[in-house]
Structures are given as C-alpha cells and as structure tokens.
C-alpha cells in the first residue's frame, strides 16, 4: 500500500454580498472564489421552456479568458448540468462565476469543489454534490529499494502542485457524486495504462468520501448557529 497526501482544504461561505451563494475555496495554495446566482431571470431568446439553463464563467487572473478557460467552462458546466435539478425551474438561468485567486496546481478540482459548495450555499436544489480529485502520475526520480511494489516506477500524487503537474506524465481530474461515489466526469491528459487509470480511480473514490465529509462539516458549521 502506498500513501500520498491530500492538500489541506479551506472553505469560507457566504463571502460576497452581491451573489446568491459564494464560496472562497482553497486546496493547498490554490484558491478560487466561486459565486452562484439562481434561479435568476433569463432573456426570452435564451429561455428553455423545459428546464433551466446553466452558464459558467471562468475568469483567469491575468488577461482575458481564452480557449483554455472556455474548455474548463464547458467541463464545469457539464458537471453542474448533471447535478442541478434543472426541471424544477424552467425558463430561468443558473449563473456560476469562477474567479481564480491563486493557481498553484489542481485548479480544476478546486474549481469544481468550490462550485459544489457555492451551489449548496445558494440553496439550489441538487441531485448530488460533485466532488473532484486531481491525480498526477509521475515517474520516480530515483528508484528506492524499500518500496513494497518494486515493479512500479511511478508515483501517484494527489492534489499535485504546478511543478508536479508539469513533471507528471499524466494528469487526471476525476469528478464523483457525493451519494454513491460514482464517476460523473473525467478530465485526463497524457498517456496512462488502464491499470494506472484503475488505480487512480479506486484511490480517488476513497478520497472523495473524505472530501464529502469535509463538505458536511462545513455545512454543519455554517448552520450550527442558524438553528434555533
């Protein structure tokens, strides 16, 4: 059995007065600010009579949003569309804005976890809460003799830093649902064997449970004083 560490998480809810729900979520040194509006009014030309539409806006710190941000936007949008009960609010919009405050690696998983908390903070009806884990696979720099599995020449790193992400031969962001820990979405880059993928999937699944517990703690901490 190998061990790796998950970076420390911090979550500050209801930080912005202007939004319906907002969260400052940090995973290690990566910090994002996520705001959510909804169900809000929608232009008639864009309305969908059957269900609400979801808009995601991913804002980088430097420069205007480019293709990379658009791609992440689409990914987060897909995750949100699957978790929000959109049919409850037809002809409305859910607007989610992700502002990067500090990027030190595993940005996507931080953004998704932040979005998940922001939706919860806004009191939006959801089927489940998405939970994301970023995993990097890196070749071992020097082969140590003490490892149990001598055949493995790579490390599995959870919540990698920017440097680790760069050095890794494959990066993987897995999104699970909070109820049954089933895979919702995957974002992968770099080549990996199916064994490695399975290994990451299984371990990330276990990790996602501890993140759900963190979500639960955060919510109960917020509501503790709220209850009469």
């Amino acid at each position: 059995m190998l061990l790796s560490t998950l970076s420390e998480m911090k979550c500050k809810q209801n930080v912005l007065k202007s939004t319906d729900g907002s969260v400052e979520f940090s995973q290690g040194d990566t910090v994002v600010l996520v705001g959510a509006y909804g169900p809000a009014d929608c232009k008639e030309s864009k309305q969908d009579v059957k269900e609400a539409i979801v808009e995601v806006n991913f804002r980088p710190k430097i420069g205007i949003p480019g293709i990379a941000e658009k791609y992440l936007e689409q990914f987060v949008k897909g995750v949100c569309e699957s978790c929000i009960q959109r049919s409850l609010h037809p002809r409305t919009t859910f607007s989610i804005i992700v502002q990067v405050i500090q990027d030190r690696g595993s940005l996507l998983s931080c953004a998704i976890n932040g979005t998940s908390m922001a939706l919860q903070d806004a009191g939006i009806s959801m089927k489940f809460m998405p939970v994301a884990v970023t995993v990097a696979l890196k070749h071992k720099e020097e082969v140590s003799m003490e490892t149990d599995c001598g055949t493995e020449d790579y490390d599995v790193i959870f919540s990698p830093s920017l440097e680790e992400e760069e050095k890794a031969f494959a990066n993987l962001t897995l999104v699970f649902d909070s109820v049954k820990s089933e895979l919702v979405s995957t974002y992968a880059s770099g080549p990996m064997t199916s064994f490695q993928y399975q290994q990451c999937l299984m371990s990330a699944k276990n990790v996602s449970k501890s993140i759900v517990q963190f979500f639960r703690d955060s919510v109960s901490k917020k509501l503790a004083a709220d209850v009469l």
Partner: peptide, 30 residues
Amino acid sequence: HVKENLMCNQHKKENLLVEIVNPITTTENF
C-alpha cells in the same frame, strides 16, 4: 462579525493522509 468565524471551515491535518488502493486486490470486483 460573528459570521466570520462560523463561515470558515478548515480541513484538519490528520484527515489528509490518502491511501492509494491497488486495483489488483479489487480486480475480481471490477
């Protein structure tokens, strides 16, 4: 505000250790 302290939640350090599961043990399940 009182709010400040309540809204902020921090992950405890002890919870951070992650176990990497080897899929060999679970291949049968898979």
